[in-house]
Simulated assay, not measured.
Amino acid sequence: MKWNLRWVAARQDIWRPSDLKTAFEAVGFTPSLSKVCALWSARPVTVRLDDLDMICAALKCTVADLMEAEPLAGGESGEQEGQQAVGQDPGAGSGGRPVPKQSGGKGAVRRLPPN
Rank of each mutant, 00 (worst) to 15 (best):
M1S: 10
K2Q: 12
K2T: 05
W3G: 04
W3C: 02
N4Y: 05
N4K: 10
N4Q: 14
L5G: 07
L5D: 09
L5S: 07
R6P: 00
R6V: 03
V8A: 02
V8F: 01
A10W: 12
A10K: 15
D13L: 06
D13N: 11
I14R: 04
I14M: 02
W15M: 09
W15A: 10
W15D: 11
R16W: 03
P17Q: 02
P17N: 02
P17T: 04
S18C: 14
D19R: 06
D19K: 03
K21S: 13
T22H: 02
T22N: 07
T22P: 08
A23S: 12
A26D: 14
V27W: 06
F29E: 13
T30H: 12
S32T: 15
L33C: 02
L33K: 02
S34K: 06
S34P: 06
C37A: 15
A38F: 09
L39E: 01
L39F: 10
L39N: 04
W40K: 09
W40D: 10
W40S: 04
S41P: 03
A42R: 11
V45L: 06
V45P: 04
T46H: 07
V47F: 05
L49W: 03
L49F: 11
D51Y: 00
D51F: 00
D51S: 08
L52Q: 09
L52S: 05
D53G: 08
D53S: 07
M54C: 07
I55P: 04
C56Q: 01
A57D: 08
A57G: 00
A58S: 07
L59Y: 02
L59N: 01
L59Q: 00
K60G: 03
K60P: 00
T62W: 00
D65C: 07
L66I: 02
M67R: 08
M67Q: 09
M67L: 09
M67W: 08
E68D: 15
A69H: 04
E70D: 03
E70A: 04
L72M: 14
L72N: 12
G75P: 06
S77L: 08
G78T: 05
E79N: 12
E79A: 14
Q80V: 15
Q80R: 15
Q83Y: 08
Q84C: 14
Q84T: 13
Q84V: 12
G87I: 00
Q88N: 07
D89W: 09
D89V: 10
D89I: 04
P90T: 10
G91C: 09
G91P: 00
A92W: 09
G95E: 03
G95Q: 02
G96T: 01
G96H: 06
G96E: 11
P98F: 06
V99M: 12
V99Y: 03
Q102N: 06
S103E: 14
S103C: 14
S103R: 15
K106L: 10
V109H: 09
R110L: 15
R111W: 11
L112G: 03
P113E: 14
P113T: 13
P113L: 13
N115D: 14
N115I: 14
